[in-house]
Design a protein around this nucleic acid. Structure first.
Length: 405
DNA sequence: GTCAATTCACATGAAAGAGACCACGGTCTAGTG
DNA sequence: CTAGACCGTGGTCTCTTTCATGTGAATTGACGA
């Protein structure tokens, strides 16, 4: 996907693809990149640092709850601050360990069992990914915790994912470990992009989890601009960005809730587009193309990795779609879905399930499904496609290929 | 014409089953000394 | 005697099905003006 040009290491591939690239170091624009400096988050950095300083004296810091929309730098800032904290701890010779877990990554840590197993693993104790009673995993985890006296800080990114799937049991247990085991002390930093999330928690969990709260407001357009500039400096070669490119990227991102990640992605893809067109500069019109491409790639990616049942449901919707002004109803989709299943020899799911599948597509933003009441004629979902016309035919062929046989 | 009752076609929730996956402990087997 | 193969048990997890309950407005039909 990315032939990062490491200086002096020119594979055959690089020689071909490298000629006239606008990029100098593309990885800077990747979302996994950790910049040296985190811009525009001074306030939050200070807050978090202040809350965490007690650890350096060996005391237990308050639990922190962090929230803000996607791409507002929550993860980055937290990582940055905790990194500095561990460095400081090393200097001061106090025992502190920060463990970072993303609760959503690759579905590997989105249940109670898996989260605890993952935490135990991070602490150096290997735990099977399945097969043990949950209690056993807790036991192992506690044992590791108590192996040596230490202060632990657990950073749980996208914490709302776990709770929405499995309830707040884990958090309750985690926050209570301190009471039972005095050997080591733990504190939790929860990161969420759903602000309403705290309200859904059990009051006991809520009060102990959000002893302190840090809010990350969206970036505004000028802020995004300076972030882009900072990264663009190392990411691109000199003077390849046309006047206004950064401004436009920032404007796009600011339009939907100041998501810096999006802005960076947009800039990166725009660069790729420029490369592909053998353009020496990244022009403004490349951004439009990049935006379209990002959208299209996302949709195609989601759809082609979907299980067959889902694909048939979606195909039914697409099939019914043309020439509809009024939207499509669940019943129609289900009838068509049933007949397609029978024809291609796939087992037929119940309407209940198909209903859920449709609402999953809704959440993915592929269709728009609104529950409406047709009065005497019942209640149903009114479904319409959210896929742009231009992408539609491509998707249709992908689905057709995948469904037949 | 007005108003409450009715009714439809699903939505939405809860519970439970099926099947895949996995670790663990016990038993069996073959190889070794 | 021991290492490794094999098997049954008991656990989690995901995807489904089954059963039950909920729901919002068009329609209906009774009623009064």
């Amino acid at each position: 996907m990315d032939n990062l040009d490491e200086k002096g290491k020119e594979t055959l591939f690089n020689i071909f693809s490298r000629k006239e690239s606008v990029f100098f170091n593309k990885s800077v624009l990747q979302s996994s990149y950790n910049p040296e400096i985190v811009l525009h988050r001074e306030e939050q950095k200070k807050q978090i640092a202040n809350i965490l300083t007690p650890t350096l004296r060996g005391d237990k810091p308050s639990n922190i709850f962090i929230y803000g929309k996607t791409g507002t730098g929550k993860t980055l800032t937290t990582r940055y601050t905790t990194q500095k904290l561990t460095e400081a701890a090393e200097r001061e010779r106090c025992s502190l360990k920060v463990v970072y877990v993303n609760c959503k990554l690759k579905r590997s840590t989105d249940t109670e069992y898996r989260l605890i197993a993952q935490l135990a693993r991070e602490l150096g104790k290997d735990v099977p990914s399945t097969g043990l009673p949950t209690e056993e995993v807790y036991r192992v985890f506690l044992k590791v915790l108590n192996a040596q006296r230490m202060n632990y800080v657990f950073v749980l990114d996208e914490i709302d994912q776990i709770v929405s799937k499995t309830g707040d049991n884990v958090l309750y247990n985690l926050t209570r470990i301190n009471e039972e085991h005095t050997q080591s002390q733990i504190s939790v930093i929860g990161i969420s992009n759903d602000i309403m999330f705290v309200d859904t928690l059990d009051p006991r969990v809520r009060s102990s989890l959000s002893e302190e709260e840090v809010i990350f407001p969206p970036y505004n357009a000028p802020q995004i601009q300076s972030i882009l500039r900072q990264r663009a400096e190392t990411a691109f070669n000199k003077d390849v960005l046309e006047q206004g490119v950064i401004e436009k990227c920032a404007a796009y991102a600011a339009r939907d809730h100041g998501d810096a990640r999006r802005a960076l992605e947009l800039l990166r893809v725009a660069g790729e587009v420029a490369d592909r067109k053998n353009s020496k500069k990244v022009m403004i019109e490349h951004i439009d193309e990049a935006e379209y491409k990002i959208d299209k790639d996302r949709v195609i990616d989601i759809i082609s990795t979907q299980p067959k049942q889902y694909q048939i449901v979606l195909y039914s919707i697409i099939y019914l779609h043309p020439g509809r002004s009024s939207g499509i109803f669940t019943g129609e989709v289900y009838e068509l879905y049933k007949s397609i299943c029978k024809k291609s020899n796939v087992s037929v799911l119940t309407q209940r399930r198909v209903s859920d599948i449709i609402s999953e597509f809704d959440m993915l933003g592929i269709v728009n499904a609104k529950v409406i009441s047709k009065g005497r004629y019942g209640r149903t979902r009114e479904i319409s496609l959210e896929i742009p016309e231009a992408t539609l035919s491509k998707i249709k062929t992908i689905l057709e290929e995948s469904i037949r046989i």
